[in-house]
Design a protein around this nucleic acid. Structure first.
Length: 585
RNA sequence: GCGCCCUUAGCUCAGUUGGAUAGAGCAACGGCUUUCUAAGCCGUGGGUCGAGGGUUCGAAUCCUUCAGGGCGUACCA
């Protein structure tokens, strides 16, 4: 409809150019907006205001010229010039009612578009270290990334969802040491668990499982393990202590058995995360291993590539990437003086890899604490000859957890945290998925567990699901009373839908495709959440004001068509957000 | 110090890329069910859009200065 109105205005402007009223080279940016106030009609155009300057005429005069040349359209019942020079359009009921047929025909395809056709985009999200279960802080990134991916798919993009598994590096070694020490404790060795180890109960579980598989084969005596170590905190240095323990584990176990312990920890947690996310309605096409970069020598290759371009220099025995040449505050080390490559070097190789896989655009969903990395990663891409605009980083602010008024502390290391699984079990997948994407990502968010857990009307997801379930009940009710309804007959009777509540519900339905397009373009799933709440509100008002199970067969068919169209849109929208559309509540 | 994000009703937040009189939900108050799910509907009150300045027909939105809050500023991962 907007396009149709824009075409009419363009025709009018062209006619005015021919008539010599406007310069032939005048270019009008025609923008059609939904009106806020229905007194201003249904759609409004501000072109007269924007043209005022270049055409050197008063806005209202331009609006009158345009209106005088506007071709007639059966969709438009009235136009008016209002305010400083807006042209307002009143849309005919026929044109509005036509949306119902479109929704019922397109069904689950309604609202989708093809603007991203032929475009490959990767969305990388969550990517939490596999050193423990996901906690609620990861939930927001998971919900956001999944919904953005769904929105992009609905806009025709070829989307790949990817999880970057940080399975290399010191944290993983700390996990391996933690697993082994718990294993030794279970084998009745007197081991004092390190303060810097992973304290969570899940480490015990992994150790237990490991022991059922290999028995006491990995056992060493406590004195062997604990002698001649740097002291632990508080007297000593907890970092040195844990590093010594890692070394001790590696030397006592040997490479093969150390890997066994290491992989037991990694695989168990990785599998747990995958299942957890699956239960959260989040599935990935690829789990990309950081270690695979090293094994394929991709890190050294990436550094060499930077070196070829002359962006790397040596200083103090280390290799530095000259990121300051691309707007960074300081240069960054890619290879340390001890010969090890840095995490940043892995990131360069990883991002190079993403684009070498043929992605047109890469979207990274990062926690807000990573914002300092954006500049350096983009710098590296630019140095590698890749347009940094092709990398889009979306920062997701932390959700601060509350139980009522009590703030919940979160730390993976201490083991005292609320896991995503707990949240899912207590609050439910639907409410938590919806709650997370109700706020825009860069907003700080207070997540009150008490509120989210309470199945009360305060929880907006129920409001929408309830609307959906109510419509499903209508269908059952009609069947019970042997009152058939027929969509083909209903679509022929749409002119009977002229109540204000019916018109405004249809108008709300009509907005859906542009909401999806807009939300996808801006990576803002919260727009869908707010839209659905409004749609449900329109439906509830309608439902309270009018009855659908009625004897008048024509009106009944028409109203049921409208209800079914509303149901379809709720279903489509909820699906994009990963929320179920229930038939009963 | 420097950098990024945020600041809108008592609370939690929207605000369609610069449009008309800034909107929801919650909380408060008053109504609506012999009839399709009251997890609902209808109504009432509530604002210096953090502050100042600028850009223009027009600013919550863009530019600038300042204040407040959060985060980041490793040869850690």
């Amino acid at each position: 409809m907007k396009q149709h109105i824009a075409d009419l205005i363009q025709q009018a402007i062209d006619a005015l150019k021919t008539a010599g009223e406007f310069d032939a080279d005048l270019v009008a940016n025609i923008q059609i907006d939904n009106t806020r106030d229905k007194q201003h009609g249904d759609l409004a155009c501000n072109v007269a205001l924007t043209l005022a300057k270049v055409a050197r005429r008063k806005p209202r005069d331009i609006a009158e010229l345009i209106c005088s040349q506007l071709p007639a359209s059966k969709s438009v019942t009235k136009t008016q010039i209002a305010g400083p020079g807006f042209i307002n359009f009143f849309i005919s009921q026929d044109a509005t009612q036509a949306i119902i047929g479109k929704v019922l025909t397109d069904a689950d395809q309604f609202g989708r578009n093809n603007s991203g056709a032929g475009h490959k985009v990767q969305v990388e999200f969550v990517s939490a270290n596999p050193t423990g279960p996901l906690h609620v802080g990861h939930g927001r990134g998971a919900a956001y990334g999944a919904s953005v991916s769904n929105l992009l798919e609905a806009s025709g993009y070829d989307v790949e969802r990817e999880y970057y598994v940080n399975d290399a590096g010191r944290q993983m070694n700390i996990l391996a040491a933690s697993v082994w020490l718990r294993y030794l404790q279970q084998a009745e060795e007197e081991i004092t668990f390190p303060s810097n180890g992973y304290q969570g109960a899940y480490v015990n579980d992994i150790a237990k499982h490991l022991r059922t598989q290999v028995g006491d084969r990995l056992k060493h005596s406590a004195p062997e393990v604990m002698s001649r170590l740097h002291a632990d905190a508080p007297e000593g240095d907890k970092e040195k202590h844990i590093d010594d323990l890692i070394e001790r584990a590696q030397s006592l176990l040997g490479q093969a058995d150390y890997s066994l312990v290491f992989n037991a920890g990694l695989n168990s947690i990785r599998d747990d995360i995958e299942q957890d996310l699956h239960g959260f309605g989040v599935d990935f096409q690829h789990w990309f291993s950081e270690r695979s970069l090293d094994q394929g020598d991709q890190i050294n290759r990436a550094i060499a590539k930077l070196q070829e371009q002359g962006h790397v220099y040596e200083d103090g025995g280390a290799l530095w990437f000259r990121s300051t040449a691309f707007g960074d505050d300081k240069d960054r080390v890619v290879k340390r003086d001890n010969g090890q490559t840095t995490y940043f070097a892995s990131d360069i190789a990883y991002h190079l890899n993403k684009f070498e896989r043929g992605m047109d655009t890469v979207i990274n969903v990062w926690g807000a604490d990573h914002h300092g990395y954006i500049t350096r990663v983009k710098a590296a891409l630019q140095a590698l000859g890749i347009d940094p605009e092709r990398l889009v980083v979306k920062l997701v602010q932390f959700a601060i957890l509350y139980r009522g008024n009590e703030r919940v502390p979160m730390s993976t290391r201490s083991g005292s945290f609320v896991t995503l699984r707990e949240l899912r079990e207590e609050v439910g997948k639907d409410a938590s998925r919806f709650f997370y994407v109700t706020r825009k990502a860069e907003q700080h968010m207070d997540f009150d567990l008490e509120l989210a857990k309470s199945e009360s009307k305060d929880n907006p997801v129920y409001y929408i699901q309830y609307a959906h379930a109510r419509i499903c009940t209508l269908i059952r009710k009609l069947a019970e009373q042997n009152m058939a309804w027929d969509s083909v007959m209903g679509l022929e009777q749409l002119e009977k839908l002229s109540e204000p509540a019916e018109i405004s519900l249809m108008q709300q339905i009509q907005l859906y495709p542009e909401v999806i397009a807009h939300a996808a373009y801006n990576h803002e799933p919260h727009q869908v959440a707010h839209y659905l709440k409004d749609l449900a509100g329109h439906f509830h008002s309608y439902y309270n004001a009018h009855r659908m199970v009625i004897d008048d067969v024509q009106l009944r068919n028409a109203r049921m068509c409208l209800c079914m169209a509303a149901r379809q849109v709720m279903d489509n929208g909820l699906t994009l957000l990963g929320v179920d559309a229930p038939e009963h509540m």
